[in-house]
Simulated scan of single mutants.
Amino acid sequence: MSKKLYDLVAKVMNVQSSTINDESGPESIENWTSFKGYVLLYELETEFKVKFTINEAMDVKKIADIKRHLKNHGAILND
């Protein structure tokens, strides 16, 4: 799942997926704007068939947070 998640983040943020890891986030990805954050949220919900709460969306500081929320929604993570 990490590769799938990293590839999705890379696509939305327009960066190489090899630069993405669990510690990546708005502070370390220059292209991560608030708009792209919303696009990423939409793409995540569509790809993993989940619905994030506003609190979950506001809680994302890095990729590890996204993974945690996906797991909480029952997404199967094959790390």
Rank of each mutant, 00 (worst) to 15 (best):
M1Q: 13
S2R: 15
S2E: 15
K4V: 13
L5C: 11
L5M: 10
L5G: 11
Y6F: 14
Y6D: 13
Y6L: 10
Y6T: 12
D7I: 06
L8P: 12
L8T: 05
L8D: 11
L8E: 11
V9E: 13
V9I: 14
V9S: 08
V9N: 08
K11Y: 12
K11V: 11
K11W: 08
M13P: 02
M13F: 07
V15F: 06
V15R: 08
V15C: 04
Q16I: 09
Q16N: 15
Q16K: 15
Q16A: 15
S17R: 14
S18Y: 05
S18G: 14
S18K: 14
S18E: 14
T19L: 10
N21E: 11
N21K: 09
N21G: 10
D22F: 09
E23S: 11
E23Y: 05
E23P: 07
S24K: 06
G25Y: 04
G25C: 02
G25E: 03
P26C: 03
P26M: 02
E27M: 02
E27F: 00
E27N: 09
S28K: 07
I29T: 05
I29C: 02
I29A: 05
E30N: 13
E30A: 09
E30S: 12
E30W: 04
E30I: 06
N31V: 07
W32P: 03
T33D: 02
T33W: 00
T33L: 00
T33S: 02
S34K: 01
F35Y: 05
F35C: 02
K36N: 04
K36H: 04
G37V: 00
G37P: 00
Y38G: 07
V39K: 04
V39D: 09
L40V: 00
L40K: 01
L41Y: 06
L41N: 05
Y42V: 11
E43I: 00
E43Y: 04
E43H: 06
E43R: 05
L44Q: 13
E45H: 06
E45D: 09
E45R: 06
E45C: 07
T46N: 15
T46L: 14
T46R: 15
F48W: 06
K49V: 08
K49D: 14
K51T: 12
K51W: 10
K51S: 15
F52S: 05
F52K: 04
F52D: 09
F52P: 11
T53G: 15
T53I: 08
N55T: 12
N55F: 13
N55P: 15
E56Y: 01
E56K: 00
E56L: 02
E56Q: 09
E56M: 00
E56F: 01
A57I: 01
A57R: 01
A57V: 01
A57L: 01
M58E: 08
D59R: 02
V60Q: 01
K61M: 01
K62C: 07
A64C: 02
A64P: 03
A64D: 03
D65G: 01
D65P: 03
D65L: 01
I66F: 06
I66P: 01
K67D: 10
K67L: 10
K67N: 12
R68G: 09
R68T: 09
R68Q: 11
H69D: 11
L70D: 12
L70W: 10
L70S: 12
K71F: 11
K71M: 13
N72S: 12
N72A: 13
H73T: 05
G74A: 05
A75Y: 06
A75M: 07
A75C: 08
A75N: 08
I76S: 13
I76F: 07
I76D: 13
L77G: 07
